[in-house]
Simulated scan of single mutants.
Amino acid sequence: MKNRSLTIKAYGKLNLFLDITGRRSDGYHLLKTVMQSVSVCDTLSFNLSCGTGIELKCSSPGFPLDSGNLIWKAIEAFYSHIGVKPAGKITVEVKKEIPSMAGMAGGSSDCAAALAAMNELYGTGLPLTELCSIGVRLGADVPFALTGGTVLCEGIGEKLTVLPAPPEMYFAAVKPQAGISTASAYAIYDSLPVKPEQNYAEFESALKSSDLNGIAKGMFNALEAAADADEIKKAKRRLLELGAVNSMMTGSGSAVFGIFANRSDAERCIEKMSDYSFARTLVPINKGWEIIKG
Rank of each mutant, 00 (worst) to 15 (best):
M104R: 01
C41S: 12
I8P: 06
L31Y: 08
I75C: 04
G179F: 01
T161S: 14
I82R: 09
K272Y: 08
V38S: 02
W72Y: 15
K195S: 10
T150A: 02
I20H: 03
S109I: 08
C269M: 11
F203M: 08
F278C: 05
A255R: 00
I54E: 02
S184W: 06
K287G: 12
L212S: 04
E231I: 02
F63K: 09
F278K: 07
E93K: 15
I134W: 00
F171I: 05
V194H: 09
D42M: 03
A227Q: 02
Q177T: 12
T250A: 02
T281I: 09
G251S: 07
L223C: 07
L115F: 10
C153H: 09
L146T: 06
L65P: 01
E130L: 14
G125E: 02
T33N: 08
A102I: 05
A187F: 02
G179L: 10
C153Y: 01
F257V: 09
N69I: 11
I188Q: 02
G12A: 07
G62W: 08
L207E: 01
A255D: 04
G12I: 02
D19Q: 07
I20F: 04
A10H: 01
L163N: 08
A206E: 05
N199P: 03
I90A: 07
F257G: 04
K9A: 03
